[in-house]
Design a binder for these strands. Structure first.
Lengths: 398, 398
DNA sequence: CACATTACGTTAGAGACACGATGAAACCTC
DNA sequence: GAGGTTTCATCGTGTCTCTAACGTAATGTG
């Protein structure tokens, strides 16, 4: 159990001010007092800290015609470094280099072999290539974050990655020693949730869910202002909620799981039965956009089932928002209306709060953007155990 | 947004030490350092604080034959006050008086009229009567906590209580001004969850669910070491998850909700169809204990449906434990095996953590015990906004 | 029996926050 | 244009934490 000490409070407050500036743009200290809820004296100290670190620049504002001393604007100096986000998936590596506030500067994508060494080698080359492209050296990289389709232990180890075929890989350590900059590694759907809360539509949501579809259907639960991982790190496994009694067989061995109707392979199989050779979400989306009736029908069937799960999730978790993300994004436009209708009709209506259901603005790139989010956290030196704020909080102080 | 300041840290730490002593029994400061994870210097300061408050007593331990300075035991002085827990339900009020560590000293129960004034009057009389019974004066009452079957606003107002027929009642204020001791009011199922985490089987669980059955089926989600309430306070509405396509009509207007099969009235109705006049969980439990085949059959049917919901909850939330509580407890023994079997078979097995499903040790009294828990929180001056630890935490400091 | 060893608890100094007061830099009015 | 007002930022004091050193009280040892 980690202690709650002054140094930690300072780190929190630095992060608060940084994010306030990142999200809200340049602001004076007094404005930051309002937006962060901190004490003026604290903002003053944090501002000095950030100035000393070279992360923010100050600019005297000219008079605004109002009485009083004119404020000094603080602004994040996006030129002092870059963040690197990456995504590992079976056979592919994606890299995204952004400014300190998350604006894209370069991207890279490449294919890779199946082993851990292959992937790390490709990742290393990819990052180098992306940095070269914009003529940025490693000295400007503040941190690297990587999203991986695997269950993670708290220390950034890959506990189990069925699609990758990896197990007990000390990914964080290996990358950290290779690059000697802060490196953060996390589960891909968790990373996608981070992208939504830092850069996406869920920026102001304390409670939201991310439902991501790639080879499987995964969920991330962002509850009460932080990611909820569950007692064993398995929380969010919504792909195996049963939606059809005695339905299609699922890879998990059971029948009628959501994943058996909505995962990429499942949709493709369903379409193959009806004479359509559309193996990916992207191709299915393209066909739907072309108005293919069979495709629309299959998607609508999947949407109905997704809607059922989402309704139950809304009843149980009362989220503010549900974000559909990942490769699934390619077909989300044809799912959304049906899902929304299901929630409106099936979820407990009378005294329920409104729940917005939307597609991620990052689409299939949400995990890579999540890598950037992980890098941002690492750059603000909010290490892994801080992710779990309980670590710093007493168990029973409710 | 509340600030995170030293005084707040002190309150947290006082609570940590208090709970460590309460749960683990008398301990030396060095032992507390180990169990709480706090610094020796902090424990020293907190110990002095608690001694000054008169909450703990110190006792020099005689030599134990080991080298070194012998420790001084700290122990909670349970004689310096009492806590009062209460439960309001339609027509009935229950009161429970305990020591500072939650040991029962007196109970009281009485019936009441439908209005808010009726209930408050009865509650007042009941508390007086219970205190009289053990010859304890109001000066010894450290705090009062009340569990209410209603949605609460954060300030302890009853936002909406359908079964009580109340709406926008400032319950906390009215009770606080009547008694002039700290008063805490919360939703009944949330209170039951508090009882489980403070005094019950979920004491060491960071992530657990409480499923309580009275007139309806409610759930409380204790996730990541704290109660999760959802964006609108509606989280945990598991009674209206659909378990049967086009099933029995539910009070919510939909069909096939869990509540339509498991709530007290629903079970009674189902049994009435089959010639059994058993209007309450208690009577149903008694009949089941007597081996009535029809009752067992109906209970098993309900258990199968509950098991389905629980399986999905386990998949999505990955809790350590699920506690069945409330009046439902009377029939839990006949539900549990079926539910456990469902979870073992239906929930994602391979890489899932184990989830224990148990009956609350407080049975139908879990809400009243939750009132005591609320009182304990109030007595440790951990006010309402502290309940939401985010209030003290930056939004994006993940 | 003096001195080392071991274990327990407290104190001293530095960092961080809150609150209240003070300094700083503009505008406004007479 | 001098003084007052308004707004923005910093400083001083007190409290709380952590680290590290110190005091305290027992046992062990030659």
């Amino acid at each position: 159990m980690q202690r709650l000490n002054p140094a930690l409070i300072r780190r929190f407050n630095v992060a608060r001010v940084f994010h306030a500036l990142r999200v809200g743009g340049p602001a004076s200290q007094t404005e930051l007092v309002r937006t962060t809820g901190l004490d003026p004296a604290t903002v003053s100290a944090v501002a000095r800290h950030l100035r000393d670190e070279g992360l923010v620049t100050t600019a005297r504002q000219p008079s605004r015609g109002r009485a009083g001393r004119p404020p000094t604007q603080l602004a994040i100096d996006a030129s002092v470094g870059v963040l690197v986000g990456a995504r590992l998936e079976p056979g592919t590596v994606r890299v995204l280099v952004t400014t300190l506030v998350g604006e894209t500067r370069a991207t890279w994508q490449g294919s890779t072999g199946p082993t851990v060494d292959d992937a790390l080698e490709t990742l290393g080359c990819g990052v180098e290539a992306a940095l070269d492209e914009i003529d940025v050296g490693w000295d400007q990289v503040r941190a690297v974050g990587v999203g991986v389709p695997a269950l993670m232990s708290l220390s950034g180890r890959v506990a189990y990655g069925p699609n990758l075929g990896w197990r007990h890989v000390p990914l964080q350590e290996r990358l950290a020693q290779r690059w000697s900059v802060p490196v953060a590694v996390d589960n891909d759907t968790s990373a996608a949730a981070l992208a939504e809360t830092l850069f996406g539509a869920a920026r102001d949501a304390r409670d939201f869910l991310v439902i991501a579809g790639h080879s499987g259907i995964g969920g991330a639960l962002y509850l009460g202002g932080r990611l909820y991982r569950g007692s064993g790190g398995f929380a969010g496994e919504i792909g195996h909620v049963r939606v059809v009694d005695g339905g299609r067989r699922c890879s998990c061995g059971d029948r009628g799981c959501l994943e058996a109707y909505l995962a990429e392979d499942a949709l493709a199989a369903r379409l193959a039965e009806r004479g359509r050779d559309l193996p990916t979400y992207a191709s299915i989306g393209a066909a739907a956009a072309g108005g293919d009736g069979v495709v629309l029908e299959v998607l609508d069937e999947a949407a109905t089932l997704l809607g059922r799960v989402v309704s139950d999730l809304v009843d149980v978790l009362d989220p503010e928002m549900i974000v559909l993300a990942g490769a699934l994004s390619h077909v989300v436009p044809w799912l959304l209306p049906t899902v929304e209708r299901a929630v409106a009709h099936e979820a407990l209506g009378a005294y329920r709060s409104r729940c917005t259901i939307i597609a991620s603005r990052f689409g299939p790139e949400s995990v890579t953007m999540g890598g950037v989010g992980l890098a941002m956290e690492a750059a603000l030196s909010l290490p892994g155990w801080l992710l779990d704020q309980d670590a710093a909080m007493p168990r029973h102080a409710t």
